[in-house]
Every structure is written in structure tokens, then in C-alpha cells.
Write a protein that binds this DNA or RNA. Structure first.
Lengths: 188, 188
DNA sequence: GTCTATATCGAGATAGAC
DNA sequence: GTCTATCTCGATATAGAC
């Protein structure tokens, strides 16, 4: 696979990643992606045979991005409590996107579940990456036995905040809840 | 409007309600609804001119159903704490649907937000009905100043549980969290 | 009020020139 | 490897018979 083709493939995936988040998977057409990536519709099928293959590419890209981000946090933040606080900062930093489009992971999983799409089990690996990382942090805080449940609880809390913030378009709610989550973490 | 036509209209709305929940709004076609309602495709347009009008009908039906349910709870349950516990029981009683399709309110709002659909502001009234009712219960528990925030917090918590349960298809997580929410309510 | 038949459009996907 | 032109299908929506 040549360099030029690979660059084109990356552009398609990047464009699809954004559009799937902002418009949803089903509602995003090949034309939308082609326009955003600056290529012709027909050129898709050299890189991806079906729309599902693009979805696969987007999920894999996100998984890599998330893994890289968490690895970077592990390198640069030594205190597990501070790492958890950094996780919560995703909410406040991505405030505007969440307000308009919700959580990129939760909304994609929701959509794929309703489509009874086979790739739901690939998409929920995005949750799984965060869950495992969160679990490791709780374990380092001496919460070995509850670590897994605490991780899922925190994941769910953040999801709920994203859904309500999105439905009401209410960033003030997001900020209030982010503070509460931080307080909860500090109390552990 | 005659009785026969009104019955047909109700059948269409009931079928659309279920299908929008199970398959999503966009992914549900007129043919799907017609088949489920047992009518011909062409007969739709006597009752609804566009798909958005069906959506409107579904949202209004849900709003009425929710209002009726909450009014019934107000009549039959006198203790506000028990009313809140009844609210949480939605999660455990609807466990299987949530596992497969998520929350009917949250997932519809998510979808409409991504479609930049004008009726998001009608759909989030479904949240609003519950929020106001929850707020009234917290107020009766002497939580006047925080009642609104507590109501939104509880809404978000339930949403998060629904999203994670759906993504992982994990009813055990739902039951664990439902217990935690109940414990939190009892501690207030 | 309900039906069948059909118009129209945009989607995913393909063929083949360059 | 990228393009233009095109196929096919399923969607919303309409017309008009009954």
C-alpha cells in the first residue's frame, strides 16, 4: 500500500470520524464523507468496500487514539487520584461538543444497538479501554475489590451527564456535575 | 374525525412508538410502521402528511402516558420517598428493554440532537415531566433549595445506567446500580 | 377512509476511463 | 490511485381508484 493511498485513507477515516460523531453513523452518507475529505465518491471503494468497513476504520482509529491518550497520562501523571481528575476534565474540556452531540462513545453504541449492528461489540471496546484504565487507578488507590464496579459507576455517571447536557443543551449542569464527581473522587 | 380513522391513527402511533424505540427514528421506514400497524403504506398520508408529524404524535402520546403514570403514582403512593423508589423500579422492571434498546427518552433525544432536528425541544419535554415530578418529591423531603439539582442528578444517573447497560448488554450492572441509587435516596 | 400504483429522490455500490 | 458516469434499490411522498 503506497504512501499516497494511505494518506487518502487516513483523510477518509478522519472525516468519517467527525461526521459519525456530529450526524450519527446512519445519517452520514458517502457523499458527506467524500465532500469533507475532499475526494470523489467513487474513490472510496478503492479504500473501503462497504460503509461498515469505514465504521471499522473509525472505531480502530478511536481505540488507538484513546490508548495513546491514556498511555500519555500514565507517563505524565504519577498520582492515580490526579489521573482520575484528568479523566473528569474531558467533560469540561469537551463541554461544547457534548452539548451539541453528546458522548462520542455512548451515542455510537446506542445507535449501533438499535441498528442491531454486528459491530456494537467492537464499539463497546471504546468503553472497555476506559473501564480497564479507571479500574487500574482505583486499584492503586487501594480499592482492589470494588475497583471494577467503581470504574463502571464512574463511566455511567459521565455518560448520564453527557446525555442530559446534550438533551437540555445545558453546559451549567455539566460543570456542576463535574465538580460533584471530583468531590466524590476526593472522598474515596 | 370519525371513530374508525381515529383508531387507525392510534394504531399507527402505537406501532411507530415501539419501532422508534427499538430501531431508532431515522432507521424506521414507513413500510416498517405500515406492516406493524397492519395498514397500507398509502393510508398513512390521510393521517400524517410527513414523517415528522408521526414523530410529533409519538412524542405527544409518550408525554400523555408519562403524565398519567406519575399522576397515578401521586394518587396511590403517599410517601415521597416511596415514590422515588418507584421511579427507580422503572430500571429493574424495564431491564430487558433497556439492555436491548437503552432508555426510550435518552436515546431519542440523542438521535434528534445529531439530526439537528427541530423537535428535540419537544422530545426533551419527556425529561422535563420527570424532572419536575422528581423535584416535587425532593421538595417534600425538605430539600427545597437543592430539589432541582437533585432531580437532574437522579435523571442523569438513571441515563448513565441505561447507556452502560445497553452498550455492554449487562443487566447485572443495572441491578447493582439500582440498589445503589435506592441506598442514596434512603440516605438523603 | 383505505387501498393500489406510481413518481421522485438520494442512498450505497460498481464499471471503466485516465 | 483517482476520477466520472452509472446501476440498483429502498426511502418518502403523491395520485387517483374504490
Amino acid at each position: 500500500m503506497g504512501t499516497k493511498g494511505e494518506q487518502c485513507r487516513q483523510r477518509i477515516i478522519a472525516a468519517a470520524d467527525t461526521l459519525f460523531y456530529e450526524q450519527g453513523f446512519n445519517h452520514t452518507s458517502f457523499s458527506d464523507i467524500a465532500d469533507a475529505a475532499g475526494i470523489a465518491r467513487g474513490n472510496f471503494y478503492y479504500h473501503f468496500k462497504t460503509k461498515d468497513e469505514i465504521l471499522q476504520g473509525v472505531i480502530e482509529k478511536r481505540l488507538e487514539d484513546f490508548r495513546a491518550m491514556l498511555a500519555y497520562w500514565d507517563e505524565t501523571i504519577s498520582d492515580p487520584r490526579k489521573r482520575l481528575r484528568r479523566y473528569i476534565q474531558i467533560l469540561t474540556r469537551q463541554q461544547q461538543d457534548i452539548e451539541h452531540y453528546g458522548c462520542p462513545i455512548g451515542t455510537l453504541c446506542n445507535e449501533l444497538a438499535k441498528l442491531q449492528h454486528a459491530q456494537l461489540n467492537d464499539a463497546n471496546q471504546m468503553f472497555e479501554i476506559f473501564r480497564q484504565w479507571l479500574e487500574a487507578q482505583f486499584r492503586q488507590l487501594g480499592r482492589g475489590r470494588q475497583a471494577r464496579h467503581l470504574a463502571l459507576h464512574l463511566l455511567a455517571w459521565a455518560q448520564g451527564v453527557a446525555t442530559i447536557t446534550n438533551a437540555y443543551s445545558d453546559p451549567a449542569f455539566l460543570r456542576r456535575e463535574a465538580k460533584q464527581i471530583t468531590a466524590w473522587l476526593d472522598g474515596l
